[in-house]
Nucleic acid binder design. Sequence first.
DNA 1: GCCATATAGTCCGAGTCATGAACTAATGTG
DNA 2: CACATTAGTTCATGACTCGGACTATATGGC
Lengths: 400, 400
Amino acid sequence: MTARTEPAQHAGMRASNLALVLGEVARTSPVSRAQVAARTGLTKSSVSGLVSDLISAGLLQESAPAATERGRPATALSLAPGGTAGLGLEVNVDYLAAVVTDLTGKPRYHHVVRRDNRGRDVDDVVADLIEVAGTAARSAASQGLPLSGACVAVPGLTVDGAVVRTPNLDWDRVYLADAVRESTGLEVDLENEANLAALGEMWFGGHELDGAPLRDFVHVSGEIGIGGGIVIGGEVFRGAHAGAGELGHVVVAPDGPQCGCGGHGCLERMAGQQEILAHAQVASMTDLIRACEAGDQAALDAVAGAGRHLGVALASVITLLDPTAIVLGGAFATLAPWLSAATSSSISHHTGAITPPRLLVSGLGSDAAVRGAAGTVVRRVIADPAAHLARQAAQGRSVS
Amino acid sequence: MTARTEPAQHAGMRASNLALVLGEVARTSPVSRAQVAARTGLTKSSVSGLVSDLISAGLLQESAPAATERGRPATALSLAPGGTAGLGLEVNVDYLAAVVTDLTGKPRYHHVVRRDNRGRDVDDVVADLIEVAGTAARSAASQGLPLSGACVAVPGLTVDGAVVRTPNLDWDRVYLADAVRESTGLEVDLENEANLAALGEMWFGGHELDGAPLRDFVHVSGEIGIGGGIVIGGEVFRGAHAGAGELGHVVVAPDGPQCGCGGHGCLERMAGQQEILAHAQVASMTDLIRACEAGDQAALDAVAGAGRHLGVALASVITLLDPTAIVLGGAFATLAPWLSAATSSSISHHTGAITPPRLLVSGLGSDAAVRGAAGTVVRRVIADPAAHLARQAAQGRSVS
DNA sequence: GCCATATAGTCCGAGTCATGAACTAATGTG
DNA sequence: CACATTAGTTCATGACTCGGACTATATGGC
């Protein structure tokens, strides 16, 4: 019933060109107006007008003129670090975390509170998170960084700002977005931790494929459970009911035992942390790593076995999605030295002549999700600066 | 290096609004200009101008005024059937097919040539296809339908207008698009048969979910091999190297035998037509169906076994992609009466608490791919009428 | 030192296109 | 038959981008 697309109007044209210019500067800063014009296809005069809007909005800044070969030197443009900032928060099974990121994506505040949240009262955890958020917001303010929003990473599915189905925290319908919004006064988004980790890895992980940043890949994030984030064309793929990418519940053993999710033979049931620790006969991940480093055969076998199961799941992912890369994150990044060989060979054993994706290891580890959460906030500003300008104008009016 | 998006200019604004209006009429014809304005968000005056362009381009037509409740009666707008048409072609293992579709999607010509193309010389098959295409084009001309392009469905991967890797025809680097383009003078696209079947099913299959057409689903097309088409947001998902959706090579038996693709335990190896026929101890699909209808236990077991394997693959698809529906097409549609129960229960046995997608059966059978091929041509015109206008203008110039 | 050349960025008139209000057209209602 | 109601058109206005002319600032050859 609803229209499929918005009508194209003059304001929309300008909005789209503002985004085009800002995006170009964000990707290739420092650049001159002339270069931006050449690369975007806009004329120099249009770029000039757009840039001056972006500068007066505080999103861009001019640096000292950079000498070129000949002719008038170009004035370099780059993102204004102080233009706006994003607050990333994360609730996880055994920690809370907060990151403030400036417009360039640089983390300007980082704080992690380690504490096992399993079995705790939900309200207490939420109260802790709000305190963490408040401290982060004060730090941003003291650095002169205006926050334009917040994003919370949670280990479960989210629907309309509420947390539903967190297998390892046992939360149900927790209206986390509202709680954080009320305490901080910011616009708050809620998103699956695995999806945000994938985005964090894309933006800040430093991965490159043939000189280009990753845009089509799958991120595997194993903490207590096993999660997956599918990124297609630089955007998270969520599926019809926001349930896509649940790599942990891909079938790797059709006749296998029942999993906590209700299915049978899921990857998480066969290669989750619990299973690995049990097979390796150790009590904790730190013990497991020590055992692997010491060359303990049971530990190495357990990790390799998990790697083989992971390879089966990834083989299906590869045949279905044909990504350019797979990024191993979370616990799998830590275990990569003893796991990735088994995973690689299992992948090639179960896939045919398909162009194989690269198997990369996360550079951010368990920071990926919070970083990604903070990143989504500033990326949203970069993707739609006109909306940000409108918000600024509205606030300016209400203040004055 | 290249700009990520085109700059928004006035021409682009108009192009986008033309598409918006034409799309709205295509979805909800007959409609009045006023209704289009209300639904798209454009003003009445803008819609008037856009509509008059579309009418003079021959893409829209006015029907007799339809009386409304009160006030001046509305003039109904609908797609002009004669505005343009698309030629769909299909090369498959045991037949060639052609369909001409008018702008409304109605098939205006349909022809199938049954002949086993395995082992035949490639050039002979291409010559046959060109003859089939020529006959179809002449029929379109005699009906006064101007073809705006052609699309060829092939049972394999395609890259840049060439067929690569057709597992069951053994073609390699056949420049089919060029051949058809030269003989017909049309713009020709080449696309995987499984993807086109999915699109055909979406556009012409008559499926509805809560009153809305399918937009996020997976189509399973089993002919000789097993193919899959993933549709996300109404568009085929192709992955990074055009290899996505290969459902036939999802792993359903990690310790299973080697498949023709090089992998092990693929769905196609475990539940392909060969395997089913062998288990049922019959020689052909027609024999198999007769045996099933007669209640032959070996046949029923073979089909149910394939259904269970299919369920395992679909369970992984569902956890990874979270589609709204699964459409069983091709041979699986024919076998659905004896297969879908096993598939359903296997899906629920292997998935957890995920919102389960609907399991639908194809209404088009083996016509889906050609219909989809013809549909892509006219859909492209509807999605970008401005480009079509430009082509018309260019041709008009070169003729006069 | 001076002038040609080259490049960066601004200014301003022209053209394109959607908007919105006023207007015309065609019907039903009391 | 006046009036309300809805459909569609006309036209002046305004928001854009475009393109060329213009200014600003460098290098290099003479």
